[in-house]
């Protein structure tokens, strides 16, 4: 099965990269852009054939490696 993991910064954690992108958008004339937050998308293929089992497995991967839960949240999508 295919899984997609979205890793995003937790609320309250400053995102200097997002801030830089927001400034750059402003410089290009895109007005009205509020906060910009940058995250990551990780696509994985897993051997599990059961959706729930695949999701549990990928969540475990997130906890152990894919996300740093001190500063990041993650969401798992099973395709």
């Amino acid at each position: 099965m295919k899984a997609r993991v979205h890793v995003t910064l937790k609320t309250g954690v400053l995102d200097p990269q997002g801030e830089a992108v927001r400034h750059s958008l402003g410089a290009l004339g895109f007005e009205g852009v509020g906060e910009v937050r940058i995250g990551k998308v990780i696509e994985l293929e897993v051997a599990e054939t059961d959706r729930a089992a695949a999701e549990a497995r990928v969540r475990e991967m997130c906890e152990k490696l894919l996300a740093n839960t001190v500063i990041e949240n993650y969401a798992v999508e099973i395709a």
Binding site: V13, L14, P16, Q17, A20, N68, V70, I71
Partner: peptide
């Protein structure tokens, strides 16, 4: 955690 430098 150690994050990207504030000045990027």
């Amino acid at each position: 955690a150690l994050m990207r430098n504030a000045g990027l």
